[in-house]
Amino acid sequence: MNRLSTLTNGLVKENPVLVSLLGICPVLAVSTQAANAIGMGLATTFVLLGANIAVALLRNVIPDKVRIPCYIVLVAGFVTLAQMVTEAYAYPLYLSLGIFLPLITTNCIILFRAEIFAKKNTVADSAIDALGMGAGFTLAMLAMASIREILGSGTWFGIPLPVLADDNISIFTMAPGGFVIFGILIAIVNKVSKGKAIKKKEFGCAGCPSAANCQKGGAA
């Protein structure tokens, strides 16, 4: 696999949010404002990058039996680091991410990439994979947050928009609106890719966009 496709995989073909449907909890919760979505996306990308590099570096050292605890400790370390740095130097962002910042630890995208990619690939490839996945996550969050903020609050990045600001549809800022927009986005992705993104008939290993990577190293 060449490096460009490793990078672009995360953007479209294996988009963690809209195709793999991973990390949905922060996506639904933090996507009420476009600015927060960018912040959450960057924080997650940072952790993803750190975790992927660390796991790839230690891939020959970590015994298979304790690999998940090892990954979690590494991920938690990066998350705590991100938390300290945002609290010290980007306090408004720290406030708006709230509980979802420490919860990046349990974001399944990170564990998924560690398990499926970083533990079988070189440090450089893993870093590229993390950047692609992080960008895909950030873009999906931004798309969702933009729709929700524009319709729900009548603003975009906090800037009031004409007409919409007077008649905002506040359900889009709440959880049900989040689910509706999320469902519509997945439907659009599936329609545009003519059903290739999520193959209905092939649920299971063969239909998974990550199948090639997953089976490369043999079943764990």
Partner: peptide
């Protein structure tokens, strides 16, 4: 495994 995990 114990050793590696503790070290990490």
């Amino acid at each position: 495994p114990i050793f590696v995990l503790s070290l990490i």
